[in-house]
Computed example of a mutant assay.
Amino acid sequence: MPGTQPTGAARLRAEDLTLSYEQRTVVSSLDVEIPDRSFTVIIGPNACGKSTLLKALARMLKPRSGQVYLDGAGIAAYRSREVARRLGLLPQSPTAPGGITVGDLVARGRYPHQGMLKQWSADDETTVLEAMRQTGVLDLADRPVDDLSGGQRQRVWLSMVLAQQTSILLLDEPTTFLDIAHQVEVLDLCADLHARKGHTVVAVLHDLNQACRYATHLIVMRPGGTIAAEGDPATVMTAELVEDVFGLPCRIIDDPETGTPLMVPAAPQRYVPEDLAARSTGPGVSAGSVMAESGRGVG
């Protein structure tokens, strides 16, 4: 049985982690701690190692070197069923068996709790129903998963992870392929699980503004699989950081809804036809002035 958790250490952390696919190194000598009971969001440019790091934290990818620790022990020391009792993973673009219903798919979240001497119980049934209720899919229990919309399917997958009854949830790009309304719906649900249920949530996201709105702890990765910055989004997210890591000039302002950092990309200087400039600005103002003005005020 794995050892006990050192005093003060995060439940999920990695030390000197190097991750590779065959001969290509994606993450190099990385140290990271996931604060307990945080909503941690990992952001960074494409191919910087965000999803690769999440796979290693979930024991889906074996490190070339270094170690991932879960509850005080190397995660490799646990049996697979024990890992699944401690953390749940929602991968990118999960696929369901053809024809499976919502209720049957969510029930698969209880498999880590089954065994030779413990079969399906009333407690399992209650847990599955509660997971579907939390994600708002209880009325879809008898529907085939294939018949659902993208937003509904994502809530069903999240429901299955909740049925595992783990206090750590790892979500790899949970909003991919969803329209904006369903993106907000899924992230609001994750925020509620964090705030009201006390879950530690770790999500990989692409949208910087969504990351800042929902995260209590932000990890910014740069190409080469190193960490550029981490901490409170209000402190971490600066225009200098965005331009350095993403190569995007911008302005950071306060989100009028939440007060969290809001990234506004700098406007390019665009050519404005003479007739449009005349209609927009009146006599005496040249198209060149309008063209220059279009890039002013953001930087």
Rank of each mutant, 00 (worst) to 15 (best):
D124Y: 01
V83H: 04
R222Q: 02
E33Q: 14
G224P: 00
M160P: 08
I168M: 11
H194D: 13
H206R: 15
L189Q: 04
T95G: 04
G295E: 14
P268H: 07
N46V: 11
R86F: 03
G115R: 12
E82G: 00
K55E: 04
A239L: 02
V32N: 11
A163K: 03
E185S: 15
A229Y: 02
G88P: 03
G136T: 00
S80K: 06
A228Y: 05
M60V: 13
L158A: 08
S289P: 02
I180D: 03
L189G: 02
L117R: 11
P35G: 08
Q119W: 10
R24M: 11
Y271K: 14
G225T: 04
I253N: 08
M60S: 06
E82K: 07
D104F: 06
D139Y: 06
P249Q: 05
R24Q: 15
Y21A: 11
A141I: 11
D16E: 12
E22H: 11
I180K: 01
H113R: 12
K50R: 04
L169Q: 12
S28H: 14
D147L: 05
A14D: 09
D31V: 03
Q154T: 09
L30Q: 05
S280R: 00
T258W: 04
P35M: 04
L53T: 12
R85S: 01
E257Q: 13
T175L: 07
L276H: 05
I42E: 06
G74M: 04
T4E: 09
T216L: 07
G231D: 14
V186H: 00
L205G: 02
D207M: 12
R143W: 02
Q164P: 10
D142S: 12
A215V: 02
R11L: 11
Y271W: 14
E240F: 07
V220M: 02
D124K: 01
W120Y: 10
L205N: 07
L169S: 00
T176P: 01
G282A: 03
H194E: 13
A287L: 08
H206S: 07
E185V: 06
A266Q: 15
K118L: 06
L117N: 01
C250M: 13
W120A: 10
A234Q: 13
A131V: 12
H217E: 11
L241Y: 10
L12A: 04
G299D: 13
M60W: 00
T40V: 01
L170W: 14
L171S: 05
S294G: 08
I253F: 04
W120F: 04
